[in-house]
Design a protein around this nucleic acid. Sequence first.
DNA 1: GGTGAAATTATCGTATACAAAAATAAGATG
DNA 2: CATCTTATTTTTGTATACGATAATTTCACC
Lengths: 217, 217
Amino acid sequence: MSSRAATRVFQGIEEEIATGLLKDGEKLDEATLAERFDVSRTPVREALLQLVGSGLATQIPKRGCFVRSPSFREVIEMFEVMSELEGLCARLAARRISEAQLKRLKQANAGCEDAIAQGDSDLYYANNVQFHECIYEACGNTFLADETRRLRRRLQSFRRLQLRVRGRMPQSLDEHHLIIDAIESGLAEKADELSRTHVMIQGERFNDLLMHMEQAH
Amino acid sequence: MSSRAATRVFQGIEEEIATGLLKDGEKLDEATLAERFDVSRTPVREALLQLVGSGLATQIPKRGCFVRSPSFREVIEMFEVMSELEGLCARLAARRISEAQLKRLKQANAGCEDAIAQGDSDLYYANNVQFHECIYEACGNTFLADETRRLRRRLQSFRRLQLRVRGRMPQSLDEHHLIIDAIESGLAEKADELSRTHVMIQGERFNDLLMHMEQAH
DNA sequence: GGTGAAATTATCGTATACAAAAATAAGATG
DNA sequence: CATCTTATTTTTGTATACGATAATTTCACC
């Protein structure tokens, strides 16, 4: 955790948006937030600026900031882009990965297997992050890796829910194995294709999940 | 022009970085900038935050902000991502473009032809922007379009130089024609492939340009 | 003369104060 | 009673003031 109040507020608001405490369209009142986080308006304003920068809020001049949860359509659009970026990472990784990186990639996946054996979805989540992180590093394009992480972060809250969807974890693991094989064999196009569908399936699962949640209502 | 001082300062610094007045690694001193733009430190700090957010500066806690021009390697990396995004835009556009959008796409390209006939590189640049803008709109993915524009904007200063490279404009136009044909025929994969190479050639040309500039020294 | 510690200085990060603009409420007029 | 105008209030955007931390300088000691 950073010692800066501004980042504390930023992460705080970010989390409240993710957990649904702050809903879409809700006004982010500077004075109220300042009081709630027990700081002055200055760090709150800095946090709001960063929120706008990362797309979680919109700012209307002289009218204030408002929560901007992406619409259903927008989430699908983000998954469409995410699948492309992940695909590119995998394609490049297939050409550029080192032995050490490949080893770590396999270790991360082994961690995923253990998590499934233990039925621990949080542990799976952590190892899954590692798995993808290995590919990002192996792609040899720092800018691409950063951009992909950024988008992954934005999709995080939607992604985490998906793992709870029945039967997703074992299927995800199967896909990981195929991706590793393709990368290890240097089959760039195959690794790309597999990764793209790996992500797009998550997008579709998100769709299923929404349907399910709407039915529950 | 915005009425906000913060955005004025942001755009001002942005331009000074683009024109080379502020060089890589140079310190962005809050007090100095405040005096130069005739505002207080508050809007300067907001501008710096935005600069950091858009990757033009880095911030070291308790030590201040510094200009962060992308390295040669990073520019190449950005082109690598850009080519992928442009490719995705074209692939989706091939599936989703409307008649009206296709018409505007052809008009933009006709504008490019005129510009070449007149030998006007600025006019070519303007119509070229229109050409790509049409594809962004036609891809039917607002998020993708926004992200691609964002990256295009960051590469702008490097891109503009390239058109001056000998023989680039006519070649670029040929590529446009092929892309239009692929999109019109609904050949998604072909449109993707053509667009990707279209951008990557620019990356390579940027490479050539750098070599040339280094020789001139 | 060189090295290390303490004092000084500078700058960042935050709080508060003020000004300007917009939203809201109140009142007058038809 | 509705509507337009005007006054009040709320809130944003900017300036200034202050405290804390890191960089720098000074000075003692080896």
